[in-house]
Design a protein around this nucleic acid. Structure first.
Length: 673
DNA sequence: GAGCACTGC
C-alpha cells in the first residue's frame, strides 16, 4: 500500500512548523478564523450540553462541516479528559486517523503525540499524556480484547459510521455492550459510564438512533459552496465514451479548475488515459493544456502522489480514479466531478466460498459522496452520466459490508470476547444465518472452535490474537509443527497485502519478464518467498537501492514494506506464544505439505479438459493468469483465493500431491479406493 | 489471459 508515501505528502501539506514566530502567530490567527467560520463552531455549547445529557448522541453532518476536528477539542475543553481519562476518536482508515490527529494537534497548538496523538497498526504516536486519541476502528477493536471495558476512555467518538465497514459495525455492537457493562459495574470494578458519539454523513440517522434505543440525533450544517448537479437527458450507451466526451466538453466550455472522473477499475482508467492523450495530440496547441493523471490503489505510492501536485500554469488536471478518490484521498483544486454511475463491488457467496467482483450501479449515497468531492473550496459542478430518473431508481445506500463478506474473522473475534451466541448477537444489520453457519463450520474445520462451537484451547485463542485471516493463522500454528515457521511467516505476510506486483497495461510483458527469476515452478507461495528474501539480502547490503530494485522488478515498494512490517509484527506474536521460529532450509517438501495441511479446504484438482474442480465446493475453476502455474497446470493445487470476475478464478497457488490431503487431514479427506 | 476500496497494539 501507499501509506508511507501518502503520509509524507499529507504532512508536507501542512505549514512548516519551524516558521518564524511572526508567521506562526499569523498562522494561529488564521486557524482561529478558520475554526470560527466552520458551521460547527456556533453549536459548541449546545453539542456539549447534548453530550452531557445523553449517553449516546448521533451527530449528522456532511464531511467538511468540521465536526471531526472540532468535536474532540470541545470535549477536551468540557472536561471529559479529567482524571486521566481519554477521548477516543475512531476512523475507518489509517491515513484519516493520522492526518486528523495532525490537524487537531496543530489547532490545539500542542506537539503531536502529547495531548493529541494517534494509534494505528505499526505506528503508535501517543504518550502517557495523550488525552485525545485518534485511531482506526480496527485498532480499538484489538484494544478491546485486552481491556474489555475500555476503562481508560470517558468518551468514544465513532466517525464515518455511515460507511458501515465491518469494523465499524462490530465496534458499535461492542460499544453498546461496554456501555451496559460499565453502567452495571460488572467484574467488580468501579468504572465511570462511557459516553458514545456516533458521527455519520448519511441523510438517514434512524438506523443508528433505533439501534441505540431511540438515541438523540442532532444535525450540523452542511457544506459551504453550491454544487450544480447535471444529468444526461438519455441513458448513455457506454459510460467510458461518455466520460471521455464530458472531459473535453468541460475542458472547452467551463471555467478553469481540475476534473475528477470516477471509473470502475485500472483497465478502464488506463484506456481513458490513453484516449485522452491521443486526442490531445490532434488538438491545436492552445487547447492541449489538459493533463491526464490516474489513481487507483494498486498504483505504486510514488505514482499516486503525482495527482496532488498542482498542474503547470494554464493547465487543467483531469484525474481518472476508482472509488479510492471517494473517501480515501482528497485532492485539492477539484471543481468538476464526472460520475460514471458505476463501481466495482465485492460480494461473497458463503455457500460456495466465492468472492465476486462485479461492476454495479452506485447507490444514491455513493453518488452524493462523489458529488461531495467538489464544493469544498469553491462552487463546483458534478456531471452524472445518467438521467435524473435513473438516479431516483438507485438504491439508497450500499449494502453494509458485514452482509457481503466472509464472517470467520468477525466470529473468531466475538468468540474470543466470550460472545458465544452469534446468531442471537445484536448486529445493526444481521448477516444471514447461512453466512454465520458457514463461518462457524469453517472455524471448526480450521481447529479454532470445538465441536460445541466454543473457542478451542489453545489454537482458537492463538488464532484470535493474530491479526490475520484464520487460514493464515492456522498455517502458522501448523508450520510450528512442520518446522517451517520462518518460511510460513514470510508467506502469510506476503499474502496479507494486496498488489505486491505492479502491472501497468502497456508494460505487462516487460513486468512479467523482469520477474521471471523469482518464479518458482512449485507455485506462487514460494515465488513470494523468494521476492521477500531477495529484498532481505538487498536491505542488508544497502538501504537506498531498494526503491530502484522495486522499480526494476515491478514490485510495489509500499506493499512490500507493509508485508515486512506484518512479518515483524506476527513474528513477535508467535514468539510470545512460545513458538520457535525455525527454518526448513531447502526442504520445500515439508513447507508444501504444511501448506496442504493448512489450506486443505482450498484444494483443486485438474480435470480432463484442463479446468480445475475445487474439491470443497465442487465448482469448476480456472487458474488466474497472474499465477506462475498458469501454463504448467499441475494435477493438484491448494489456493489462497477464489474470486469470480470474468470467470471463476483461483489465485495464489502451490502444487501439492493429492495423497497428502488424506494423510494430513484424515478427518476431512478419505483415502480413495 | 487479468486485480473496487479499506483494516488489524
Amino acid at each position: 500500500m501507499a501509506q508511507g508515501e501518502l503520509k509524507r505528502s499529507l504532512l508536507n501539506n501542512n505549514p512548516n512548523p519551524k516558521s518564524p514566530i511572526a508567521s506562526r502567530s499569523r498562522k494561529r490567527q488564521k486557524i482561529a478564523e478558520h475554526r470560527k467560520s466552520l458551521p460547527i463552531a456556533s453549536v459548541e455549547k449546545r453539542l456539549i450540553e447534548e453530550v452531557q445529557k445523553n449517553d449516546v448522541l448521533i451527530i449528522i453532518g456532511e464531511t467538511g462541516s468540521g465536526k471531526t476536528t472540532q468535536l474532540p477539542q470541545f470535549l477536551f475543553r468540557a472536561g471529559f479528559c479529567k482524571k486521566r481519562k481519554m477521548v477516543g476518536i475512531t476512523q475507518p482508515r489509517r491515513i484519516a486517523a493520522m492526518s486528523i490527529a495532525e490537524r487537531v494537534a496543530e489547532e490545539s497548538d500542542v506537539e503531536l503525540g502529547q495531548r493529541v496523538g494517534y494509534s494505528i497498526r505499526f505506528d503508535d504516536c501517543t504518550s502517557s499524556t495523550t488525552r485525545l486519541k485518534l485511531m482506526t476502528d480496527g485498532f480499538l477493536l484489538r484494544e478491546a480484547l485486552v481491556d474489555p471495558l475500555l476503562s481508560r476512555y470517558s468518551v468514544i467518538v465513532v466517525d464515518e459510521a455511515h460507511e458501515r465497514t465491518v469494523d465499524t459495525d462490530v465496534l458499535l455492537a461492542l460499544l453498546k455492550d461496554v456501555q451496559r457493562d460499565r453502567l452495571s459495574g460488572c467484574q467488580g470494578r468501579k468504572v465511570s459510564p462511557l459516553k458514545l458519539i456516533i458521527m455519520s454523513a448519511s441523510l438517514d440517522a434512524s438506523v443508528f438512533s433505533e439501534y441505540f434505543g431511540g438515541a438523540k440525533a442532532v444535525r450540523v450544517e452542511g457544506r459551504p459552496f453550491h454544487v450544480d448537479i447535471l444529468y444526461t437527458v438519455r441513458p448513455v450507451e457506454d459510460y467510458v465514451d461518455a466520460a471521455f466526451n464530458t472531459i473535453f466538453q468541460i475542458h472547452s466550455e467551463e471555467e478553469p479548475g481540475d476534473i475528477l472522473v470516477f471509473l470502475t477499475g485500472q483497465e478502464e482508467i488506463e484506456s481513458v488515459e490513453r484516449l485522452v492523450k491521443e486526442k490531445l495530440k490532434d488538438l491545436p496547441e492552445d487547447e492541449r493544456k489538459l493533463l491526464p493523471l490516474v489513481i487507483y490503489s494498486a498504483l505504486p505510492s510514488e505514482k499516486q502522489t503525482r495527482v496532488f501536485a498542482p498542474a503547470p500554469t494554464g493547465f487543467r488536471k483531469v484525474i481518472l480514479a476508482t472509488n479510492i478518490a471517494e473517501t480515501s484521498i482528497t485532492i485539492p483544486g477539484i471543481r468538476y466531478v464526472i460520475d460514471s454511475g458505476f463501481v466495482k463491488a465485492r460480494t461473497y457467496d458463503p455457500s460456495k466460498g466465492i468472492k465476486t467482483l462485479d461492476v454495479v450501479e452506485v447507490s444514491k449515497a455513493q453518488a452524493l459522496q462523489r458529488s461531495g468531492r467538489v464544493g469544498r473550496e469553491a462552487p463546483g459542478k458534478c456531471f452524472r452520466l445518467y438521467p435524473e430518473r435513473e438516479f431516483e431508481k438507485l438504491k439508497d445506500s450500499t449494502k453494509p459490508e458485514i452482509k457481503r463478506c466472509n464472517l470467520s474473522n468477525v466470529i473468531l473475534h466475538l468468540k474470543a470476547r466470550g460472545i458465544d451466541d452469534i446468531v442471537g448477537f445484536d448486529f445493526i444489520d444481521k448477516p444471514s444465518r447461512g453466512a454465520i453457519v458457514k463461518a462457524l463450520a469453517e472455524l471448526y474445520l480450521l481447529g479454532a472452535l470445538t465441536d460445541d462451537c466454543k473457542l478451542a484451547k489453545p489454537a482458537g485463542e492463538q488464532m484470535s490474537r493474530l491479526p490475520l485471516d484464520p487460514f493464515y493463522s492456522r498455517a502458522l500454528i501448523l508450520a510450528n509443527q512442520f518446522n517451517c515457521l520462518e518460511e510460513m511467516l514470510i508467506t502469510v505476510a506476503m499474502l496479507s497485502v494486496e498488489s505486491i506486483f505492479y502491472d501497468p497495461l502497456e508494460k505487462r510483458e516487460e513486468a512479467r519478464n523482469s520477474r521471471t527469476h523469482f518464479a518458482n515452478v512449485e507455485g506462487d507461495h514460494l515465488t513470494y518467498l523468494s521476492v521477500y528474501r531477495e529484498s532481505d539480502e538487498l536491505l542488508e547490503k544497502r538501504n537506498n537501492i531498494m526503491e530502484k530494485w522495486c522499480k526494476d522488478n515491478f514490485v510495489n515498494s509500499g506493499s512490500l514494506k507493509l508485508a515486512r512490517d506484518t512479518y515483524r509484527e506476527i513474528r513477535e506474536h508467535v514468539e510470545q506464544m512460545g513458538f520457535n521460529v525455525s527454518s526448513c532450509g531447502n526442504d520445500m517438501l515439508e513447507y508444501r505439505r504444511c501448506l496442504a495441511a493448512s489450506f486443505f479446504l482450498k484444494a483443486a484438482q485438474r480435470q480432463m479438459d484442463g479446468t480445475y474442480r475445487a474439491l470443497e465446493s465442487g465448482e469448476i475453476v480456472h487458474i488466474h493468469p497472474t499465477s506462475v502455474l498458469f501454463h504448467s497446470k499441475p494435477e493438484c493445487v491448494i489456493f489462497d483465493e477464489f474470486i469470480q470476475t470474468s470467470k471463476k478464478y483461483i489465485k495464489n497457488l502451490t502444487r501439492i500431491d493429492h495423497l497428502w490431503l488424506a494423510e494430513l487431514v484424515p478427518h476431512h479427506y478419505k483415502i480413495d479406493e
